[in-house]
């Protein structure tokens, strides 16, 4: 079975928990090479997403992602706002009205999210940005879908590749964003946006595996 609206809601709740849990870690990463607000901004943004989900429960996975996009663009404040906002928005558009997201549509949505981030931030592979987590994530997701894996396994593959991609940003020289002003001094630090991207994909994968194990009666991990 594919991923439904309950999955989307569970994913966003899990994302909020993860951002709260990793807030200080992201702040520390961003302090090293940025303006040290990433952890706080992401935590605040997803807290607002959860509040909005409570106010206006979405009726489709796409509606949940679109709501998330709008809230993040207005509440995050830093570059992550428009970048993740665009990613969620493009993913929502790719999902369309489907209530049951299968592996192929899921891959299209992940690709659309990556394309959105690239279009908005103009970053390329190796620039030491969140793109370096998203590119391997989308590739791994596509491989898994091609191999006939279900949606939950596709997300798990994406999350695992994103984590590796985030770790691989450590030796890179930043060429985009605030970190690029540091030049050589950016080397040796993991990119905070790549790390939060990996965390978000992990939350999406965990929500999917829970949905699978509960066989259609997902619990909100609130």
């Amino acid at each position: 079975m594919g991923l439904d609206t309950a999955w989307a809601v569970a994913f966003l709740h899990a994302a909020a928990l993860s951002m709260a849990e990793h807030r200080d870690e992201l702040i520390a990463l961003d302090r090293a090479i940025g303006d040290s607000d990433h952890g706080e901004n992401m935590d605040r943004g997803f807290e607002a997403v959860v509040a909005k989900l409570g106010d206006t429960p979405p009726e489709s996975p796409a509606a949940a992602l679109k709501l998330t996009a709008m809230v993040l663009m207005s509440k995050v404040g830093g570059a992550a706002g428009p970048l993740y906002g665009t990613a969620f928005l493009r993913a929502a558009t790719a999902l369309g009205e489907t209530a049951d997201v299968g592996p192929d549509v899921l891959v299209s949505a992940l690709q659309a999210a990556l394309d959105g981030v690239v279009a908005r931030g103009k970053a390329e592979a190796g620039d030491k940005t969140m793109v370096d987590a998203w590119i391997p994530a989308v590739a791994a997701a596509r491989d898994a879908a091609t191999a006939g894996e279900p949606a939950a396994a596709v997300l798990a593959a994406a999350a695992s590749a994103a984590a590796a991609g985030a770790a691989a940003t450590e030796p890179m020289l930043a060429r985009k964003g605030r970190a690029s002003y540091l030049g050589e001094r950016s080397v040796g630090h993991r990119d905070p946006g790549a790390q939060s991207s990996a965390l978000l994909l992990l939350a999406a994968a965990q929500a999917a595996s829970q949905q699978d194990s509960h066989a259609g009666s997902p619990e909100s991990p609130r």
Partner: peptide, 13 residues
């Protein structure tokens, strides 16, 4: 600035 007066930008604003 953001809509709650911090450094940053807000789509709403």
């Amino acid at each position: 600035g953001t809509d709650d007066g911090r450094i940053g930008t807000s789509l709403d604003t």
